[in-house]
Design a protein around this nucleic acid. Structure first.
Lengths: 213, 213, 213, 213
DNA sequence: TATGAATGAGGCTTCATTCAT
DNA sequence: CATGAATGAAGCCTCATTCAT
């Protein structure tokens, strides 16, 4: 059982028995459901426990706090989808545009699939320092990754050399993730997924000066 | 004397006397200060009143609730700065790029000036339905305005005709406002204001396919 | 200007000028209206003042407290109608039944006319010691008066001699006033005024053993 | 953690464990004691909890509000004593008078036993709509029951046929309950219980025209 | 006298977390 | 491990009354 220290998901105790593992899992699902339904602030431990069909006290057998439960829930989603990653393969392919398009398509699909959870993260990072920092760390990580890809494209003459790679990386990332948030969490507008993919990809490529193949 | 629910309180009325106007103003400043310092959720009426140097109850002479006070605070900032507006003059000028640059420069300056307040709005729109809607309405309004400007540029052959004006407008708007949020509210990165202006303008123009004059 | 000490209607100050007298009167009407509309507890000084078209502070120019205003309002009604009085002439007339009928008719009419106020008195005597005592004093006074009338009828062989005059007086008084309360304040049932008069009179006479003339 | 309005609290649920049942019972007794001592309006949750020896918050484990607690307290007393019921057997017995006397004796005894609670009901029905309606419903129910008994007596020639049974039922009921209120709640007069029973029974029988056996 | 702003004590209610069973 | 009852700190809001103009 590897210690889960990467995120502040300090559970109350690691489940020992098989029954324990099952109960923890049930609670985790319940927590996600209630968090998504009510938001983090409004979610009550009692409701989570009720939803899981256990007593309120049992919650603390597996999670040290409401925050810890949220951290555990957020772990499920994983890091890769939390920002539009330019595939690390970007620089290695002949056609950057289709790589970017694929990345955006994958990102938007994942965002949509986890829309409630993404909204939850958005909310909680406004309210809890711990999660705000988690969010910033991730933003930074993805920004750096994309910045490297952009720099590489610039070196190869495939991107506008006048752009600061770092700023540009964050900017196009922000554009995509924010649109995804508006569309899938706030249900803003009625654009189809494909329309979003096409438009964002074109804007992205235009912005970075990536030539259409 | 126990509190009473029977009738709507006549609280939050507009001040009649000059003294009243003065107190209301003091309270408004105090509210803004406390909101910015502690965030909306953590802000306590008592603190606002104390900061204003009045009794706790006096708060309710001018504001019906914490929400009402926040709404009043937010009104101060006004609508124009809440999203990067393409100047309506954009289509009428010879040089769209410098218009966009000026708009971005103005927007970022305003954002920076009101950074704490913008962060506050971000927070509260994650927590209070009323403000979420306010936010969405504004997003919509500015999106429509910018969409019209983009469409006009497209008609004049000055913007990429393949773009959906509406989506594109929201996307570039999101890009700029999000970067402003990261930089000025989250203190992310260390880019200078001017670097932001230059990079964002260039990204924006690239993205929309606006030719450099 | 006779001192009003009979009831605890200690006004803040006796009006001196004609204007003062007018304002006090307006406030009194307003107080009655608001008390009747909202009840004593829910009534707010601010509302009374607003209803009277004066500032809140002005209320205290004429009334020392909310209770004092109520006392002043209640004075308007006067003592005579607060319990069904057997006319003092009862013993002197040839036909007690028609005297009783007339008394009941008058009482019920007065009760109906002042229904809201009677309900108010009922409420406030449950909530304020001062008014509870006022109410009891009145009950006692009317009981004694009626008890004397009943005793007189007994002496003349016109009433059941087995009855305790005092208890009987209170009992029939309670019967009439309670029915009036149910009918006119609680809007209980749909009996006509005349039906009430007839039935109550008959019950009253039967109860006391007064022979039908 | 600020209070939350979002969802209905799951407060006031029925106890599951024996310990819970015990605590609820303790709180119920405490509530009754405090209500009777201070009246409903002046009673404070803190006092009830203190009297029960539990934390203030524990009150809400079993009662959703002060009103709910009062409702629970009032349930204890039950319906049968809230108005003088003519025994349903009245029409079937040979001697209506002794039936009435027994009913009045029982009623007055019960009233006296629960005097504080009856006063409480009187108070609260002046202040809370919910309890006013409870009161009226009960009045109506008992009125109808007694009305049927009176009608039956009239058919058998044992009651004054000129009386409206419904009005008469309410009137004699009001007489008895009001006297009980005056005597036992307001401590008005000094009549002995037996004197009340005798006088009220005689008045009642006289009023309805029930012949002395 | 009139105004209307300022005062401030006071009580309900919530719910994360603990703990005895 | 599970249960579910108990805890108790914390904050909003009201409104009768006072008081400076």
């Amino acid at each position: 059982m590897p210690p889960r220290q990467a995120l502040p998901a300090q559970t109350g105790r690691a489940p020992v028995s098989a029954r324990g593992a099952r109960t923890r899992d049930t609670l985790l699902r319940a927590a996600r459901a209630v968090f998504e339904r009510d938001g983090f602030l409004a979610a009550r431990i009692v409701d989570i426990a009720a939803q899981a069909g256990v007593a309120a006290g049992s919650f603390y057998t597996y999670f040290a706090s409401k925050e810890a439960a949220l951290a555990a829930v957020l772990e499920q989603v994983g890091d890769e989808m939390l920002h539009p990653p330019l595939s690390p393969a970007l620089a290695d392919r002949d056609d950057p545009v289709s790589v970017i398009e694929a990345a955006n398509r994958a990102y938007l699909a994942a965002y949509r699939r986890n829309a409630e959870l993404m909204g939850l993260l958005e909310q909680v990072s406004q309210v809890d320092e711990q999660f705000r920092e988690l969010r910033l760390r991730r933003t930074r990580a993805f920004g750096e990754r994309n910045a490297r890809a952009i720099a590489s494209l610039q070196e190869r003459g495939l991107a506008d050399p006048a752009l600061d790679p770092d700023l540009a990386a964050h900017a196009v990332g922000a554009m995509v993730s924010r649109i995804a948030y508006l569309r899938y969490v706030q249900h803003f507008g009625d654009a189809s997924n494909e329309a979003l993919v096409q438009t964002l990809t074109r804007l992205w490529c235009n912005a970075l000066g990536i030539p259409r193949s």
